[in-house]
């Protein structure tokens, strides 16, 4: 906006016959869709926050998310989710490079950067699949009604409760069960975000096929890549807040 061309300042945007927002219909509607989607995610995260604020105890993310593939029982808090975050940031960068190549009608570069973006998206989904599997199947010794049970993290059970004073089990502090809402919110919100990543990957694959087939070349512009890019960046944007609410604070 800083260096707005003179023509932009003088144009009577609302006099009719042109888009008053200087964008094509599809891009404007993508923005409004993303705004509504932001409210959907916002409502989910605020609901999670409300329940979390209403509890006297909430699991420490550094204790829940401390595993890394092939690292066995090593205590590596935040390591795996950092990897996921960087994968998503990098795929966002490759996407913006694809959009940039589209501005120059550079078909070869668009194809190259779209392929990297799709690889990034699939890598993120693979990480999430591993994390979910680890949480659901990873057993923890938990005191339930005076009996030690081994349970994983699911939408109905949460082994990450407060520690039982003085009770040890296999060299770890024995805990009671934690708030059940933890699993429901974690799997619900990261699942909804993961579904957005999945649909983003599908959209990007369709865009890649259309680019390879020369659809945009014939059309004369790569605006569809821009719209897919907006969606993909939004997925990255939502992850910033999912990462914040579930893993950092």
């Amino acid at each position: 906006m800083a260096q707005a061309p003179a023509a932009e300042m003088e144009t009577k945007w609302w006099s009719g016959g042109k888009s008053p927002f200087n964008v094509e219909y599809g891009k404007l509607m993508m923005w409004y869709f993303l705004m509504s989607d932001a409210f959907t995610f916002g409502a989910f995260l605020i609901s999670y926050g409300t329940i979390r604020f209403s509890q006297n105890f909430w699991p420490d993310p550094n204790k829940v998310f401390n595993a890394f593939p092939l690292a066995g029982h090593a205590n590596l808090p935040l390591a795996f989710v950092s990897l996921m975050t960087f994968i998503l940031i990098v795929s966002s960068v490759t996407m913006v490079l694809a959009v940039h190549a589209g501005h120059h009608n550079d078909k070869k570069s668009v194809i190259k950067w779209m392929i990297w973006t799709i690889i990034g998206g699939i890598a993120f989904l693979a990480c999430q699949a591993w994390e979910w599997t680890h949480l659901i199947t990873g057993d923890h010794a938990v005191m339930v009604n005076g009996v030690v049970e081994h349970i994983g993290t699911t939408v109905t059970r949460n082994p990450w409760g407060p520690e039982v004073a003085g009770a040890m089990h296999d060299g770890h502090h024995l805990t009671t069960t934690g708030p059940v809402a933890f699993g429901g919110y974690f799997f619900g919100i990261t699942g909804f975000h993961g579904f957005h990543v999945l649909s983003g990957v599908v959209i990007n694959i369709i865009m890649l096929i259309m680019t390879i087939n020369g659809v945009f070349e014939k059309r004369g512009h790569y605006l569809m890549i821009e719209k897919a890019g907006l969606y993909w960046h939004f997925v990255d944007l939502v992850w910033v807040f999912v990462f914040l609410c579930f893993y950092l604070i």
Binding site: M1, A4, E8, W13, P20, F21, N22, V23, S92, V93, M95, V96, V99, G229, L230, H233, F234, D236, L237, V240
Partner: peptide, 14 residues
């Protein structure tokens, strides 16, 4: 992310 990657900063003010 919104300002640079999504180019919202380059759209018109409205």
């Amino acid at each position: 992310i919104v300002g640079v990657f999504m180019h919202l900063g380059e759209e018109i003010k409205n």
